[in-house]
Design a protein around this nucleic acid. Structure first.
Lengths: 199, 199
DNA sequence: CAAATTCTTGTATGGTCATTCAATTTTTTG
DNA sequence: CAAAAAATTGAATGACCATACAAGAATTTG
């Protein structure tokens, strides 16, 4: 039963410690020893489980992307119409499980490092493409082809921007408010598109 | 006449080299020696002029903020109505002099470092507040009080998000297109606000 | 329980790099 | 032009830190 259990538990603990530590000092600023201390382990054990600091960052981001995926699927399960499905996917980005100060910070560090780390860059490209494709899938049934691209990129840029602001930590992120604002923007974009050209 | 001329020239050269270098390897990843080589100088001279790597980053960001300010003022000079002034301020963020791959990269590094460097944090807070205040000043004459806050934060989040995407470098940033998209979003927000409540 | 496997960590290593400093060159000034 | 001031840099310094490793502890297995 518990064949790979310990490994999984440690992986979890270390990734959680990494999220907290990165939030506290940034990825470049934090040391392996600090992350280890946060997890109640030794720096050497991080290398035992992950191989390197870069790989730890990569696994940490995989974790965040997984949280996003879970939140998205949970919300999609309750959505019936294309419009509901679109909103479900957007609101998932500001789910209570994802839109926290620590995770916002990690996401920023990810953006800052991705251009210089092939593994992160790949992760970013894949995730972005997946989200874009999902959004477009629903939009195709909601807005005219002519504006599809613009609406999709606008939504995605807006969501990224909200994350940035949250990571600057001047105000505690309010997930529910973020969802409401994002939804309002989406609905505005949908209504306007339908109205200006008919759908 | 040339009392402080050499110092100014060197500052310029070093800041330009810093922008290029940071774009190439990230702030944490680049060394003083690399930045110096890019400028045709020595690492020691950077410290002579700036005192430290962190101060160089700070001055580099001041440069970008100054470019934004110049672009904003230039566009404001040609704007007559509140609506034109709002659009001028928004489009300034995607001015040809500012919205370049290298400068987008630096901006991301700035966002990633600001939470951990008081000097950068301060710069970020001040700039953000200034832009927010300017935008709100125009919006006050354009949309109902009730939506003012939401419209302003939406615009700002969207602009930040566009910068992030540009910095990921998957596509070469097209400043003119970015301006058109941003303008379209602004006009949509204005029209909808006016329509839904009257202004 | 004994052998094998997995896990854990203290310590050593090697490399990297920002920063300092003294010495030199260049420029300014009177 | 000579003295002073400013600019420049090579090389030394001193920290810091990711990673490797070997030795030992814990756990699993048969």
């Amino acid at each position: 039963m518990g064949r790979k259990r310990i490994r999984d538990i440690r992986n979890d603990e270390l990734v959680v410690a990494a999220i907290r530590s990165i939030h506290g000092k940034g990825f470049a600023g934090v040391t392996m020893a600090e992350i280890a201390r946060e997890a109640g382990a030794s720096a050497a054990s991080i290398n035992y489980y992950f191989g390197s600091k870069d790989r730890l960052m990569e696994e940490t981001m995989r974790r965040l992307l997984s949280v996003l995926k879970v939140a998205t699927l949970a919300r999609l399960a309750e959505a019936a119409t294309p419009r509901d499905r679109l909103i479900a996917m957007i609101e998932a980005n500001f789910d209570d499980t994802l839109f926290t100060p620590a995770q916002c910070s990690v996401w920023i560090q990810f953006w800052a490092n991705a251009p210089y780390a092939p593994a992160l860059s790949r992760l970013h490209r894949i995730n972005r493409a997946r989200v874009a494709s999902n959004i477009r899938g629903e939009l195709r049934q909601l807005v005219p082809e002519r504006v599809l691209d613009r609406v999709q990129t606008t939504i995605q840029a807006y969501m990224d921007g909200v994350w940035i602001e949250a990571a600057q930590g001047e105000t505690v992120p309010d997930a529910a408010a973020a969802r409401a604002d994002a939804r309002a923007l989406a609905e505005l974009l949908l209504d306007q598109s339908r109205q200006s050209l008919g759908s």
